[in-house]
Design a protein around this nucleic acid. Structure first.
Length: 521
RNA sequence: GGCCCUAUCGUCUAGUGGCCUAGGACGGAGCCCUCUCAAGGCUCAAACCCGGGUUCGAAUCCCGGUAGGGUCACCA
């Protein structure tokens, strides 16, 4: 039988990296075994069922290169593709209701007329006795035909009839053997009481199991938080007359020792905001994007991470190929990944290590690829025009070569390219204060400009030689000369090699910018 | 609180009874290189949660603590 795995996000409006890691494990497992990876949208909670809440999730997976064999269409229109469509739970409720009716008929489920007050008082009592409250509903032992009759007359929540005195046992691929007595499992609700429109919506565990059986899912790889409701789901599979799939509960993703949640994440730092603004973001645009934080895929995309790097980092967190490898090509991961090798302890998300992985991926790219990846950022920053002129492309290529490993994110390209692409220098006030407003700097710049005026050819090696000779002649440390010249022509203290910078800028611009800078000393 | 899960440097991990005076990586510290900043090279600090067993021998097996986490809905 073919391996079939699945990931079932609920539409929240953003793609969470913890979810991505779980999805990745499913995807890898399917790809390794030549099976199918299925995407299903868990939107049984009607309030959340909106296309705009699904789109970011689909876009995120698409960007990451995690493709699905069956599921919603990429446009998030609500359409699906695949033999078991639709793949939106919100569109499948009839199936759940029909399945629930069958369970009532077979005596595996029943309507529960217990009042809320009754349940509360029983729960209180159990609590006072320091015992777990295991709910059993009113019609548990009523004959099926009578239950069906009562339900038709007065529909309420439908509960699964959990068998007594049995054991649910399953072999979890990550956790090992799990054993739970049915006497500790409450009769779970599988169908809600009718809502205002008379619809009886299925609950998570039930909808999931009906779908899993319907889709022929063979491996359920999901987050550890679902471990506790797995026994219930196995009971539902059995009541339905279906074979339960195999389970693998992978540990959660933490940050600072706690489950990574959107709330307690830092907002964008001032550096990040400055970076996005340099890339052309307006305050207005930033305000509308509270989904941009390090728990979401969108954040990494906007900052210019390479999808493969994020994937590499996320897989490596909780799984290792061997004792030494950190950067692991996707094909190697696919060829070696197995759920049984996933660590049992939760993994702490470490953005510094992710950035390192990212920089390792970036340095493997050619200058051409760096330019290609940075283009959308440069366009947004209005530094280049849309059909890219050949001359500009050639310049960008040279910038990419000169900037080399300094570019860690595609958005970094904007910083290094700005001084060369903009007509006027934007002087960083602090740089000016530190490097230009010092005694003697003006005269020195003037004298160095005179050297450059007649220099032939105006290329990096010649400029370098002139720079060294000039520094020695006037008795100034090379680093100090670098500082003032650099700030004069770029406005910043940081940048790639000064000779390369001057050469790419061209003699005319260099001389006029130094002239401007002299006025600021 | 009941039930369940987990436990190696700050972090991610290797390790499945002797190869472990515990290996690698990120991060940190220092030095070198150097036109700023990166990158690179070299070096250093840094861990088997605690207590009992089992064994000739334990990070590895067993028991008990401790700590952290998950879960207890007509949420997913």
């Amino acid at each position: 039988m073919s391996i079939r795995t699945r990931f079932a996000p609920s539409p929240t409006g953003y793609l969470h990296i913890g979810g991505v890691r779980t999805a990745l494990f499913n995807w890898l497992y399917a790809r390794r075994h030549g099976g199918q990876f299925i995407l299903r949208i868990d939107d049984t909670d009607a309030a959340r069922n909106r296309a705009e809440a699904v789109k970011p999730i689909l876009d995120g997976f698409d960007w990451l290169g995690i493709d699905w064999d069956e599921g919603p269409t990429k446009d998030a229109s609500g359409d699906s593709f695949g033999p078991h469509k639709p793949y939106y739970q919100g569109q499948r409720n009839d199936k759940y209701v029909a399945a629930a009716m069958k369970l009532i008929e077979a005596g595996h489920a029943y309507p529960d007329y217990t009042t809320q007050a009754e349940q509360d008082s029983r729960r209180d009592l159990a609590c006072r006795l320091k015992k777990a409250y295991v709910h059993r509903g009113s019609n548990r032992d009523v004959p099926p035909a009578e239950n069906l009759r009562q339900y038709k007359e007065r529909p309420v929540a439908v509960l699964l009839r959990v068998p007594e005195g049995e054991k649910v046992v399953f072999e979890d691929h990550v956790r090992g053997r799990v054993e739970v007595g049915t006497d500790t499992i409450r009769d779970p609700a599988i169908l809600r009481a009718p809502n205002a429109d008379g619809v009886c919506g299925a609950l998570y565990s039930f909808a999931t199991v009906v779908d899993e059986a319907d889709f022929g899912i063979t491996q359920v790889i999901r987050a550890e938080e679902h471990l506790a409701n797995t026994p219930v789901q196995i009971l539902i599979f059995k009541a339905l007359g279906a074979t339960p799939p195999e389970f693998a509960h992978v540990p959660l993703l933490y940050r600072n020792g706690k489950k990574i949640s959107k709330r307690d994440l830092p907002p964008l730092s001032s550096e990040e905001i400055a970076k996005l603004k340099a890339c052309g973001w307006t305050d207005e645009e930033l305000k509308g994007r509270d989904d941009l934080n390090l728990a979401t895929v969108a954040y990494y995309r906007e900052l210019g991470y390479i999808p493969a790097a994020l994937v590499n980092y996320l897989v490596r967190l909780g799984w290792a190929l061997n004792a030494t490898d950190e950067i692991i090509p996707l094909e190697t991961v696919i060829a070696n990944f197995d759920t049984k090798d996933v660590t049992k302890a939760p993994g702490n998300f470490d953005e510094k290590k992710l950035l390192w992985v990212q920089s390792e991926y970036m340095r493997k790219l050619s200058a051409d690829e760096k330019v290609a990846g940075s283009l959308s950022y440069l366009r947004r920053a209005k530094l280049v025009s849309d059909p890219l002129p050949d001359a500009t492309r050639a310049l960008l290529l040279k910038i990419a070569e000169a900037a080399a490993d300094r570019i860690k994110l595609f958005s970094d390209f904007v910083f290094y390219a700005s001084p060369l692409l903009k007509d006027a220098v934007e002087y960083n006030p602090k740089a000016v204060a530190d490097k230009l407003k010092k005694p003697g700097v003006g005269d020195r710049l003037k004298a160095f400009a005179d050297e450059l005026r007649t220099l032939e050819p105006f290329d990096p090696p010649t400029i370098m030689a002139s720079f060294t000779a000039f520094a020695a002649k006037v008795g100034v440390k090379p680093r100090d000369l670098d500082g003032s010249v650099r700030v004069a022509v770029t406005g910043e203290t940081i940048g790639f090699g000064l000779p390369e910078t001057l050469a790419l800028l061209g003699r005319d611009k260099v001389l006029s910018r130094i002239d401007t800078a002299i006025g600021m000393t």
